[in-house]
Nucleic acid binder design. Structure first.
Lengths: 205, 205
DNA sequence: TAGATTGTTAATCGATTAACAATC
DNA sequence: TAGATTGTTAATCGATTAACAATC
């Protein structure tokens, strides 16, 4: 029963649960419990059960959860039982590392197009993808039904690039530039800035 | 007045405020308000005022906040009015990109040591740093008073590397490996996994 | 069966928002 | 002064935890 009013904070924890379940699966562990998952993730068992209960009952009383089954259910809920084609814009050091990173495949994503505005980079090959100019963004996004983009351009260009993505039909943006993007309510954006995470820790040191 | 019982969720927003204030400063804007900041960040003005009030009063009624002053105060609260030396462990594609990334300097951090366990990489130079073997981790961390580490090793090694860091004296870890680290209560860990962020968005698509 | 663990309800806790006196 | 915006208090809202009946 895919509900519509699931709190964002709950949805935000599901990928963590899914990641741990995949890890358990590779370890050959077939059954787990809210208590064990919670201990591994530093989350209370009650919270895990409550979170999952928003979507239905996936366990058996007295038995716990079947790892493979719960994993499949979470993949379905998060809609990563399919592969989302992604655009990557900005092929600097970080963009290159992201382009090479294989860790997104088999977790629901695949980079299918690379873009940069540097004429020296356009035409270069990375793996089996060729870097394209920004003028190709809109046609390629439409042609390949791309709904997710990763942005790894300098901060000064990020807002403009994001708007170009959205105009082209992208609905979700993962932004690596150290600025807060302004996106309309019908679009989604997530931000990754290592310094933000570092500063969250130094306050306590 | 540095308090001890500030909610984590409040501390977590301060780096976002700081980043925006730095941006405003580079734009030449000298005064802002909770309303303007909130609009830019997608956060309510009341929340920004409430967050800041945990640490004191930084504004003037009717006037708003002096950008430079508030920025300095936040830098002090987050303890990034100093430069934290960091170790980076794992010099693959991502580690290399992080090593080249200049965006951490002038935000309170500097990578001062690189480590890898691959003999082919040890001794290589990146910028003005040389990649060292893991046997050098403990002595270098002590010698250079390193309290913060970034881990960019494969998932299978991350927990072991984290424990080595902590044993050597590191107190805060930024982990790029796609696993949840288990750290003791006296240590801090933050995790960056792009797929987690992507999956938080696909649920809604 | 006896023991264990779920799913859910109720209670607690904490965070956000609203409102406004203070005051620049 | 008049207008604007802070800092703070009180009210609301939402999230987490505790507890337990259901049941595997």
């Amino acid at each position: 029963m895919p509900a519509k009013d699931i709190p964002d904070i709950v949805v935000g924890r599901l990928p963590i649960y899914l990641r741990e379940l995949s890890f358990l699966a590779t370890e050959g562990i077939q059954v787990t419990s809210s208590h064990e998952l919670g201990k591994r993730l530093g989350i209370s068992a009650a919270q895990i059960r409550k979170d999952l209960s928003h979507f239905g009952g996936f366990g058996k009383q007295g038995m716990g959860y079947n790892v493979g089954h719960l994993r499949e259910q979470l993949r379905r809920i998060l809609k990563v039982d399919q592969e989302w084609p992604m655009a990557l814009i900005g092929i600097g050091d970080l963009g290159r590392a992201l382009a090479h990173y294989g860790g997104v495949v088999d977790r629901g994503f695949r980079i299918v197009a690379l873009f940069d505005n540097d004429p020296a980079k356009i035409g270069q090959q990375i793996g089996d993808l060729e870097i394209m100019g920004m003028d190709q963004l809109a046609p390629i996004v439409r042609e390949r039904s791309i709904r997710v983009a990763m942005i790894a351009v300098p901060a000064a260009h990020a807002q403009r690039v994001a708007e170009a993505c959205l105009a082209a039909g992208v609905q979700a943006i993962l932004n690596y530039a150290p600025i807060t993007l302004n996106v309309p309510p019908d679009a989604r954006a997530q931000h990754i800035d290592p310094v933000v995470h570092l500063q969250r820790m130094t306050h306590h040191l």
